[in-house]
């Protein structure tokens, strides 16, 4: 399968196989007008399947969303056909307005315009807790 190389844009690589569409939705890429390719189950160099997203436009991505949803993903920022910056995205220490607290007793459910903030409390087990009520995400 061939996808044209992009000149200016972003390539999200090394996405865990099967997670590409989830990231596409979480990042709100459906709202973009430019070309976006989601490649599922591509064969990586180490013989492992992976997903890739190619975005044919320079955009500001919420890297915290990527780090939360699939830590270890590589984001390549492409400028004039070359990789201008390459970043491996780890789990962020804090998530702001990425997910909502599911505890019906939490203040975030009723307080006006309160930001939904989650703190990484256990990196090994990927546990985030609501900053307000400590409910696990």
């Amino acid at each position: 399968m061939n996808i044209e190389p992009i000149v200016n844009g972003v390539v999200i690589d090394h996405i865990t196989a099967g997670q590409g569409m989830r990231l596409y939705e979480l990042l709100g890429l459906d709202k973009l007008d430019c070309s976006v390719a989601v490649i599922k189950n591509a064969m990586g160099k180490r013989g492992l399947r992976k997903d890739i997203i190619k975005i044919d436009q320079e955009i500001d991505l919420d890297l915290d969303v990527i780090g939360y949803a699939d830590p270890g993903v590589t984001v390549n920022f492409i400028k004039d056909g070359k990789v201008a910056e390459k970043r491996t995205i780890d789990m962020p220490e804090k998530l702001v307005d990425v997910i909502k607290c599911r505890n019906p007793r939490c203040i975030t459910g009723t307080e006006q315009e309160l930001r939904h903030i989650f703190i990484l409390t256990d990196r090994k087990n990927k546990v985030y807790r609501c900053m307000y009520c400590e409910t696990q995400a």
Binding site: R105, C106, I107, T108, G109, T110, L114, M131, Y132, E134
Partner: peptide
């Protein structure tokens, strides 16, 4: 005192 969890932090 407030019935909502996290209200004191707010």
């Amino acid at each position: 005192r407030h019935p909502k969890e996290g209200a004191a932090l707010v």
